[in-house]
Design a protein around this nucleic acid. Sequence first.
DNA 1: TCGGAGTCAAGTGTTCAACAAGCCCCATAT
DNA 2: ATATGGGGCTTGTTGAACACTTGACTCCGA
Lengths: 224, 224
Amino acid sequence: MELAEIHRVSVADQVASILRQRILDGELIPGTALQEVPMAASLGVSRNTVREATRILSLEGLLKRSAHRGVTVAQLSLEDVGEIYRLRHLLEIPAVRAARMEDSDVLAEMRNALEGYEEAVEGLDWVRAVRFDLYFHTLLIRFHRNRRLESFYQKLLGELRMGMVLVDLRHDNPGGLVPVHRRIFELLTGGKTEECASLLAQLLRDSETRLTAVMDQRIARAAK
Amino acid sequence: MELAEIHRVSVADQVASILRQRILDGELIPGTALQEVPMAASLGVSRNTVREATRILSLEGLLKRSAHRGVTVAQLSLEDVGEIYRLRHLLEIPAVRAARMEDSDVLAEMRNALEGYEEAVEGLDWVRAVRFDLYFHTLLIRFHRNRRLESFYQKLLGELRMGMVLVDLRHDNPGGLVPVHRRIFELLTGGKTEECASLLAQLLRDSETRLTAVMDQRIARAAK
DNA sequence: TCGGAGTCAAGTGTTCAACAAGCCCCATAT
DNA sequence: ATATGGGGCTTGTTGAACACTTGACTCCGA
């Protein structure tokens, strides 16, 4: 028997992962200020290590650093959301067009994502649902077979997910999107790429509209 | 009189910039090992600061870190080059299609880049020529009006530029590409976007072929 | 001669403590 | 109420120390 894995990940990377997860799961709300000393103490690592971790996350766009003012959890503006959605169109639509028969591995993974999505929605686990939703889209990008693009895309969806945790999911839940995703998956396996592309485009438009509306509302409430 | 600028840039960022420039200008060739202590000493900063800088550059893809083995200047493989060129197609072609009349600011900047390119070629300053060449393409991306995309693209071209410094520019100089770039610019200002797109596609194909050939040759020579 | 085990120096990973520098808040004066 | 000027708190950076890996080197036996 062999050791499961060698934990050769640096502490700084581990700290970054922990913070990343807390941010993406909505545990740390955008705008929250993070102080180095308390964090280092609570995580049991040194200040320097925390600094390295925040450096990583700020380059990923999840944290925002201002000199001598500390780091805060990044906050998406409406412009940011628009920018990200334009990129999603630019990248996802050509992705489904690039889908081929040889991509059965990706399709299999998509089926898993879809099932996880459905289960999460049934279990009312919205955080998990969002995660599977976005994972599904990451898999679309995989049709490009391009690691750089995929990691860029994950960064984008990470930023977006951070914005989505603001949505009050009890009233505006994402469960309604399950059938659309299933349909997209079916069109993809059926080779109907054009039809799939247009359905996907519509999904993206709707999704942007919905998120923008929520954010608008929240901004208005905050300005009150 | 006012102070030129407020140096509100952290030391780590400055170190990162210095290293970035050295790498992109070919001063540090791919594969070179960088040791923390000597670097810190020669730059007059602490080891921690150097570490932050290398962390930044490794996230940009310019340096490669392996645990306990130090950092080296990243080396592009043929797969990497192929990956990057597929992204260039994916992003640059839609960019010229997205070009509008309102983008006169970008066009003006492109004219500057073109002139800088021509001057550099005339002056036989190949490093500068490559820089202006790639800057021209960055400006194409600007038609998307998307900051995230632009910074991603600059990262990509940075990696590519690192591969291009290997090319022996005395025998395989990029001066021949000036007319093509000029033509692309003219087609763009003339609003002939489709013609421009196909010319650009061809430029990208040729450019990839050329770089791949040089790298192949170099790999073969290294294996000898 | 070859190969493997043990040894060791060099370099990275991480921590800790200290100080410098900038920002924010608040008390004070006009 | 608006400036002004501390003063405390937090970040930025340094330097030194120690733990842990790695890779090379040596030594020994087959």
